[in-house]
């Protein structure tokens, strides 16, 4: 298994037998929700889609794995999504086969997907690796595999000596408390059963990783082990163990 990082996404290619391009949390249609929260911006769906197509061209994968939250509006389709979503999916599909692991924001998306594209919400195995969106308990089938998930939008505030911060999307590889997750795994496989949290492709979504640990909002994040967590930047730079980062709290 080999990995390639595309920092312009952020997106990730995982190459085993096949070359899979992994993209999480596109949140097409987020602008309508922003407006409801008092932030008024034109739809950036076209820019976002073009960014995705460029990465597809650059990565030249066999398949695109979309880790959920392709759309944004809950509990149903917004007007914006009704108009935009079918075209967006068709544009992607015309380039490359897709697999979709629906997320909590994807209610109603089935009608725009082919049966072969739609994957189980609690995840399944592709090419030896477990994939899921991450809002539900992972299927027991994933036990013993690396689990790749979206949903958490990890962001990191990087601070330098004087304390000035830059906010940047990151990957978080975490050890898991498998018992807590209700997964039984043999000793041999327990080490490889880690979670890899993928940053959101959507350019304005994000949760600070300290907050993800402090106030976990998914089954997987509740059972992640801080001490066994490591941070990787969007361009594949190994930043180090989570515990080596300075937290604001301990200043």
């Amino acid at each position: 298994m080999n990995l390639e990082f595309f920092s312009d996404g952020p997106a990730l290619v995982i190459e085993g037998e096949h070359r899979l391009l992994i993209v999480a949390d596109l949140h097409f249609g987020i602008e309508a929700d922003l407006a409801a929260h008092g932030l008024h911006f034109k739809s950036r769906s076209t820019d976002r889609l073009e960014r995705l197509l460029k990465i597809i061209d650059a990565a030249d994968p066999d398949m695109l794995v979309l880790l959920g939250d392709i759309k944004h509006s809950i509990p149903s389709l917004s007007r914006q999504e009704y108009y935009e979503l079918p075209k967006i999916l068709e544009t992607i599909r015309s380039r490359i086969p897709i697999k979709v692991f629906p997320g909590n924001h994807d209610i109603g998306i089935e009608r725009y997907l082919l049966d072969s594209e739609l994957q189980a919400k609690d995840g399944s195995i592709l090419d030896g690796i477990g994939y899921l969106h991450g809002h539900m308990y992972p299927s027991p089938k994933l036990a013993g595999h690396l689990m790749v998930l979206g949903h958490h939008h990890p962001l990191l505030l990087l601070k330098d000596e004087v304390g000035c911060a830059i906010q940047t999307p990151v990957y978080l590889r975490a050890g898991l408390d498998l018992n807590g997750l209700g997964m039984s795994v043999s000793q041999k496989n327990s080490l490889s059963c880690r979670a890899l949290l993928i940053p959101a492709f959507n350019e304005i979504s994000g949760y600070d990783i300290f907050q993800i640990f402090k106030k976990p909002f998914s089954p997987v994040s509740r059972f992640m082990k801080k001490e066994e967590s490591e941070i990787i930047l969007a361009d594949g730079t190994y930043l180090g163990p989570f515990m080596s980062l300075q937290s604001d709290e301990t200043d």
Binding site: L34, H37, G38, L39, H40, F41, R44, L155, Q167, E203, I204, S205, G206
Partner: peptide, 21 residues
């Protein structure tokens, strides 16, 4: 410019990255 309402709620998104718009 009307981009941000006086009572806007920035909590859900990364305002720093929004400003890059």
């Amino acid at each position: 410019f009307g981009a941000i309402d006086p009572d806007a709620d920035y909590e859900k998104i990364s305002i720093l990255r929004l400003l890059e718009y």
